[in-house]
């Protein structure tokens, strides 16, 4: 099928398949999966600016439903989410403008491709390290004190940053925190969303938990709320810059909707740190695909 807006011919079943794969990952691992969908689309020959915009568009459809579910469960800290949006929107817009600049200078595929490789390697390393740490903790049946203090110490250290205005977040059990810390987290993840077309959950989640000290269940719900905003705003701003092929996004989303439900059911059979360790290999596949496409050995036409 020819996708006329992006100017590429791609088999729609392959696109729906990519959507299905990232949908399963979303339901299974609790991640948006943009960091896998992006390299796969690029590998199929979709130009990088359309990869970013279209990936964000397909993510919007998924995240609205997921965020609504978590909102019903009371897992979204609305006050935290609304403040973070300020940084998120500035970050997304900055990322979209960088893409526009790179597109104009003809370097978008190379620069964003390399950025993808770096980010994917970081995700893979972090996930493997985190899973191995959890496996070690299970074996010894107690928390490694040094490591636990490491995280708590980091949170305490960061929260010494007390530049006003200070606010409280009762829903997350935080008495006082600088607004700038929250806006900063939003900006960094928004920049990744605007630049790479990812939801940014793989960066926002650890930052919410370890930097801001938000409880895990609230961090998950608030993260989905932020993905909904960043993907929605990212879709709009990238579409206005001519970087979104909505037909492609709609086709991908048909697979993602089914995959998300299946992924959620699959967690009943397969769960735990060993599966997360397996998951750490997936970003490496993304690295290989991006590198293949960059050197002209990809599957695109």
């Amino acid at each position: 099928m020819e996708f006329l807006v992006a100017g590429v011919t791609v088999n729609p079943l392959l696109l729906a398949g990519i959507g299905f794969l990232v949908g399963i990952m979303g339901g299974f691992f609790g991640v948006g999966g943009g960091f896998i969908a992006g390299p796969l689309m690029f590998w199929l020959g979709v130009p990088m600016n359309f990869v970013v915009g279209t990936d964000l568009a397909h993510m919007t459809g998924k995240s609205i439903v997921a965020a609504k579910r978590h909102r019903v469960l009371g897992h979204v800290d609305i006050k935290l989410g609304l403040i973070m949006i300020l940084g998120t929107i500035v970050g997304v817009e900055s990322g979209a403008r960088i893409i526009e600049f790179l597109e104009a200078s003809g370097k978008v595929d190379t620069v964003i491709g390399i950025a993808y490789v770096v980010i994917l390697l970081i995700i893979s390393t972090f996930t493997a390290w985190e899973s191995l740490r959890a496996l070690r903790m299970i074996r010894t049946e107690h928390l490694d004190v040094k490591e636990a203090l490491g995280f708590r110490g980091m949170t305490r250290h960061i929260q010494k940053f007390r530049v006003p205005p200070m606010i409280s977040l009762p829903a997350s059990g935080i008495g006082s925190i600088s607004v700038w810390l929250i806006v900063g987290v939003g900006f960094i993840t928004g920049l990744l969303a605007g630049l790479l077309g990812v939801g940014g959950g793989f960066v926002r989640m650890p930052m919410l938990i370890y930097v801001l000290g938000i409880p895990t269940h609230v961090a998950i719900g608030t993260d989905l709320f932020e993905i909904m905003i960043s993907a929605g705003y990212g879709t709009l701003t990238h579409a206005l810059k001519g970087n979104v092929d909505v037909m492609m996004a709609l086709v991908m989303h048909t697979g993602a909707a089914l995959g998300a439900q299946i992924g959620a059911v699959l967690t009943r059979f397969f769960a735990g740190p060993r599966i997360r360790l397996l998951f750490s290999v997936l970003p490496l596949l993304g690295v290989v695909m991006v590198l293949f496409q960059l050197v002209g050995l990809g599957g695109g036409h």
Partner: peptide, 25 residues
């Protein structure tokens, strides 16, 4: 009309998200 296209794109993907979630459920 890129502006109308952008807003319609957002509307379509949100509408499909809600519709397909209902269908799959």
């Amino acid at each position: 009309n890129l502006t109308l296209y952008a807003f319609l794109a957002l509307f379509l993907i949100v509408a499909q998200g809600v519709l397909l979630d209902g269908l799959t459920s």
